[in-house]
Design a protein around this nucleic acid. Structure first.
Length: 282
DNA sequence: ATCCTATCCTGTAGGC
DNA sequence: TGCCTACAGGATAGGA
């Protein structure tokens, strides 16, 4: 569920809330997330002070002094929740509890357990297998249309699944892929290799525009996603096609369509996002 | 290399 | 109200 804007919202709040705090203890639920949380994590972090929180694609990196970084991915339902004082609610599915020396707490909650949590040496971030293969982050290094076109050359997969591939661009998920293509007026079913240069330019423009606006709205909440303070994001109300099947297009009033690509829902306007014009036969 | 499928897990929404 | 089913925003291993 959480895509780049949601992860960036959490990053900003985390950075503002936990930077400078020193870990007193870490306890793990013992249940595996997508992978088992390494048992060394609590020992690696005890006594360390948070130096800052960064984001690459949908990954969060909590930096600590002493060359330690905590790498986390929210998966579908992961949340970081912060409690400034010792008072904290009873919550199910909390898989890691960080207690800071000043009495504040930070919890990682993840109902579906598709998330990820592990520690690594800060100096080895660039060579980490999970991060090394990621494409450019569109907020840090927005790709140009020509770059996208080159990367997509000869690919037969749809342009929408192309945008979802974290190895090509890191951070776009299922909601924003549909939104970006609607705003760029490109049919999501088009083969990535057949998207024109002008269309790639439009897509390249809309990627940071859509993601940036979603960050301003603190992300999109349908059900699971929450900010560090447990609050929903507000961007769901600004979505133009996602989850609007059958409802009128905000531009042309034609009903929005839902199709499935690579087992994921795709939403688009059949008029505003035309299929490629085909040369007349004979 | 490219692509497709199945899979991990639980909460939620919708139908009856 | 309760029961049941289908579906969900991600990522990856494995096979064609």
């Amino acid at each position: 569920m959480p895509e780049l804007p949601e992860v960036e919202t959490v990053r900003r709040m985390l950075d503002a809330s936990v930077r400078g705090r020193t870990v007193r203890s870490v306890t793990l639920s013992g249940l595996a997330l997508r992978r088992r949380v390494p048992r060394e994590v609590p020992k690696a972090l005890r006594g360390r002070t948070v130096t800052g929180v960064e984001r690459v694609g949908k990954y969060l990196l909590l930096g600590f002094d002493g060359d330690v970084t905590l790498l986390s991915h929210l998966g579908m339902s992961g949340r970081w929740l912060f409690f400034p004082d010792a008072r904290a609610p009873r919550l199910a599915h909390v898989h890691a509890r960080f207690a800071f020396a000043d009495g504040s707490r930070l919890w990682f909650q993840d109902a579906r357990r598709f998330g990820m949590l592990r520690a690594l040496a800060t100096g080895r971030i660039a060579s980490d297998p999970a991060l090394r293969k990621l494409g450019p982050d569109p907020m840090t290094a927005p790709p140009e249309g020509a770059q996208l076109g080159r990367a997509a050359r000869s690919l037969r997969i749809g342009v929408k699944p192309f945008l979802l591939d974290q190895h090509r661009i890191a951070g776009i998920g299922n909601i924003y892929a549909s939104e970006i293509l609607f705003r760029a007026r490109v049919d999501p079913r088009r083969a990535a290799g057949r998207v024109t240069a002008a269309e790639w330019d439009a897509i390249a423009t809309e990627i940071p525009a859509v993601l940036g606006e979603a960050i301003e709205g603190l992300g999109t909440t349908f059900s699971m996603y929450r900010t560090l303070w447990g609050e929903p994001g507000s961007f769901a109300g600004k979505l133009r096609v996602y989850d609007r099947a059958g409802q009128p297009c905000l531009t042309c009033a034609r009903p929005i369509r839902r199709v499935v690509q690579a087992q994921r829902a795709t939403f688009y306007c059949p008029r505003c996002q035309r299929p490629a014009a085909r040369p007349a036969k004979k």
